[in-house]
Amino acid sequence: SMTPRNLAAWKISIPYVDFFEDPSSERKEKKERIPVFCIDVERNDRRAVGHEPEHWSVYRRYLEFYVLESKLTEFHGAFPDAQLPSKRIIGPKNYEFLKSKREEFQEYLQKLLQHPELSNSQLLADFLSPNGGETQFLDKILPDVNL
């Protein structure tokens, strides 16, 4: 039987930034390497039904966080204590930039997980799952997110 998901019992950290080779740039001789946040996830909410904690890592691009934020805002309203840095920041969103923002992005996710109204959010669970709609956070890149 499916036990309700409780995201408050998920632990996340963003230990480092890595590179992802963009598969859509196959035709180019040199694949584009996109910096991504590595999110470590530890799922602890199914102990009651005999599941050991599960661990996995998921890689998300800078932009995907903003798609998540705007979808969550659309469905739940804003979370004043859980906000990403302004996306109006000028300059390349390169490896060094992501490294400098790693802790802020980590804190953003950690705070979201503590919100009771998100404890069973499919959207947030998908964002933190390796097979959780790889595309849904890239396909619907919003017009107001211009990076």
Rank of each mutant, 00 (worst) to 15 (best):
L63P: 02
E107L: 08
S1H: 12
K140T: 11
D45T: 03
V49C: 14
F65E: 01
S119R: 10
K31E: 08
N120I: 06
R27G: 15
I89C: 07
P35Y: 07
L72K: 00
P130H: 08
F65P: 01
L72T: 00
D144N: 15
R88W: 05
D81A: 14
S13E: 05
S121W: 05
L142K: 14
I141S: 06
D22S: 13
L68E: 00
Y16R: 13
S1V: 13
G133P: 04
P80L: 15
V58E: 04
L123K: 06
F105I: 01
L68T: 01
L128D: 02
Y59V: 07
E52L: 06
E42A: 14
I90H: 09
C38N: 05
Q83T: 13
P116F: 14
K140L: 14
E69Q: 13
W56M: 02
F127T: 00
K11I: 05
G132Y: 00
K87H: 15
L72F: 01
F65L: 04
E52Y: 05
M2E: 14
Y95I: 04
P143V: 10
K111A: 02
R47G: 09
D139Q: 06
Q136D: 13
L63G: 14
H76G: 07
E29C: 10
K28G: 12
L68W: 01
R60S: 01
P4M: 11
L109E: 01
S86E: 09
Q110R: 11
E29N: 15
Q83M: 10
A78K: 12
G132N: 03
I141R: 10
I39F: 06
P143R: 12
E104T: 04
T73D: 15
N44S: 08
S57R: 09
R88N: 13
L138V: 12
V49K: 09
F75D: 15
E29K: 13
N44P: 07
T135Q: 15
P23T: 03
D81Y: 10
N146F: 11
S24F: 15
E74H: 08
R27Y: 09
S86P: 03
S86M: 04
K101L: 14
V49H: 11
F65Q: 01
R88V: 09
Q136K: 15
I90V: 14
R61G: 09
W56R: 01
F65T: 03
D144W: 08
G77Y: 02
E52T: 08
W10Q: 00
E64C: 02
K101C: 12
F97G: 01
C38S: 10
G77W: 01
I90M: 13
F79R: 02
D22F: 04
D144Y: 13
N94H: 12
S121G: 06
F127A: 03
L123E: 10
L63R: 09
S1C: 07
L109F: 02
T3P: 10
M2V: 14
K71I: 13
R88A: 08
Q114V: 07
L142A: 13
E26N: 07
Q136E: 10
S129W: 06
